[in-house]
Design a protein around this nucleic acid. Sequence first.
DNA 1: GGCGACATGTAATTAGTTACATGATTAT
DNA 2: ATAATCATGTAACTAATTACATGTCGCC
Lengths: 175, 175
Amino acid sequence: MGLNATTGTILGFLLSGPKTAWDIDQRIGVSVGHFWNVTRSQVYRELPQLAGEGLVRVQSGSGKGERRTYALTAQGRMAFRRWLDEGPPAETRRIPILLVTFFGAELEPRRLTEILDQMRAEVTAELDGYEELAPLLADRPFEGATLEFGRRYATLVRDWIDEVARPLAGGGTEN
Amino acid sequence: MGLNATTGTILGFLLSGPKTAWDIDQRIGVSVGHFWNVTRSQVYRELPQLAGEGLVRVQSGSGKGERRTYALTAQGRMAFRRWLDEGPPAETRRIPILLVTFFGAELEPRRLTEILDQMRAEVTAELDGYEELAPLLADRPFEGATLEFGRRYATLVRDWIDEVARPLAGGGTEN
DNA sequence: GGCGACATGTAATTAGTTACATGATTAT
DNA sequence: ATAATCATGTAACTAATTACATGTCGCC
């Protein structure tokens, strides 16, 4: 019975009405996807699974290779609420740039600088993306709060690179 | 041949001399474990695997249920460097508290407040842990840089809860 | 000599990713 | 009508977690 965060999230996206796997994947991609990685395959795979458990039902499209739309059942809605009410699952952190930095002494300073610079570029692009997103969430406080987290996080990474990591890599490319 | 981040990390910890699985796990726990989750089982499982590939060799302890010490081989050292030089793997973010916040409207304000308060407590404890750790890393700039990241991150979470999320949960417990 | 904490390892399960094989739709 | 893109789904594989079964050591 117990949902995990991924299936919980999928159900959560059906709250606002029936959707196809594709729809759900797209919506995840522009929202929770920024802080909760889910692959397309998972969405396609879990939906029939959830249907088997009665948390979701196929609203349309049964044929082979045909577009299937899923709707949340009353049971599914309950399962979602139960899951959400449990509180967040234990966090597993995985921050690759810190792993590289941790072993930074084993790397050529040049290469480390390069890696940090690329990370900086990525995180800056991310920040730009958030700025575009912001107006759309003006009237959605909870989504807005997660966006604000993203903004702060991206800023943190950028500043940390500028103030801490890059100076440390030092000699690499003084330009 | 290609290492992944977990095996790369394990090899990285053998750079400073031969160790047992237990040793490696302990050291990971107080260092990279803060930003790169690895389970004990992985360490125990990967080491014999790496030995099979010649990246590591059993230095002592062959008997059943006996303490085995592993040492890095020349090949292993090379594989580690190659891995590190590749740069960080793609990041997969998983921040549970944001998932709960995202769906915050579906939760009783009281419950959400509770969850945020608990998260705040955890992150504050984490911050305290980092302060204790700091003096030990005074002469290790790269490790120190990752610690500084951790400090900033924990602070970010705390401030975000105070300034953004908790006010939003609002009505819950005004005390 | 037995209890508790520390340590070691494997097996079973679950989750997540990558690669592949098609199908449907739309613009030219 | 056909290429390009968008969409759908499954299968194979890899990684990660959880649960379990022992073992060893120090000490009371």
